[in-house]
Every structure is written in structure tokens, then in C-alpha cells.
Amino acid sequence: MTTETHIWKLLEDVSDPEIPVLSILDLGVLKKVQVQEDGKVQVTITPTYSGCPAMNTIAADIRLKLLAEGFKDVVVNLQLSPAWTTDWLSEDGRRKLEEYGIAPPVEPDGDIHALFGRDTVVRCPVCQSENTKLVSQFGSTSCKAHYQCNACLEPFDYFKCLK
């Protein structure tokens, strides 16, 4: 196993501070790991949303994790382009989200109907009913919308599609 593969493996332990069931690999936020000849480690991450306040925490967690594993020089870079999309969310990540009570993004064409259009059918993560309603496009964090289930009445978060 190369050092880089080893680091990818280690970083499976770093989770999103706002959705702790998801690792940064599940989320598709971890983009690149490079180890230079002098041993310096460069890790590149990309934000889900421009203003995502979790990025600094994630960067700090990556550094702490790698420093604890004996890497001496760790730099975390932020890269905007190509812009993150919910397509990068792993299958495993989708499953974990639903189990955690957050509806995963609906495939395949996203739910940005900016200039109106149909509403997305989002399934309730608690009772699986498709009879749900959007309460607000903006929820507890940038990446989530606020829904309610008409069947079991449970309010829940929906991880918005971003394409």
C-alpha cells in the first residue's frame, strides 16, 4: 500500500461535523492526497457550499488526524473547481444519510427548478412515505432543506441536490 492510499484510508475517520455519520470520503469532499519527496502531505478538499462553515473544522480535523499518525508536515488546500455536486456522494453515504434520518438527494436531474417547475418527490426517511411536503428550501445547514411527512407527520431534513 502506498503512503497515499494509506492516508485515504486514515481519512475515512474524519467526518462532517454537521452530519457526523458521513465521512469526508462519503461526502466527496476529499479530492486529492499528495505526498512529496520531503514527506510533506498536501490534502485537497472542496466545499459543498461556498459559505460552508464546516470546511475549517474539516481542515483542522484532517491535520490533527494526520499529525497524530506521525506525519509532520500537513497542508490542507481548498479547491473550488470543479464545483462539488451531490453526484459525488457515495452510495454508502446515501444509505447512511437515510438511516440517520436525513433524506438523500433525489436522482437524477436534481431539484433545481430555479425558474419554477415541478416539485421533487422526497421520501420520508422514517416511514418511507412519498407523501411529503417542502417546508423551506433552506434548512438547518446550507446543504439541507426542511421537509415534513404528511403520513407520519415527522419533520425531517432533506439533503438538497446540487448539480
Binding site: 457550499y49 473550488l80 464545483a83 433545481i112 430555479a114 425558474l115 433552506f138 438538497k160
Partner: peptide, 13 residues
């Protein structure tokens, strides 16, 4: 490109 995706939600709101 990054902000366009977000602006799509704003204009809808």
C-alpha cells in the same frame, strides 16, 4: 460555477 448552483435556490425563493 460554484455560486451559480446556489443562486438557483435564491432566485426560486
Amino acid at each position: 460555477a460554484k455560486s451559480f448552483k446556489e443562486a438557483s435556490y435564491h432566485i426560486k425563493w
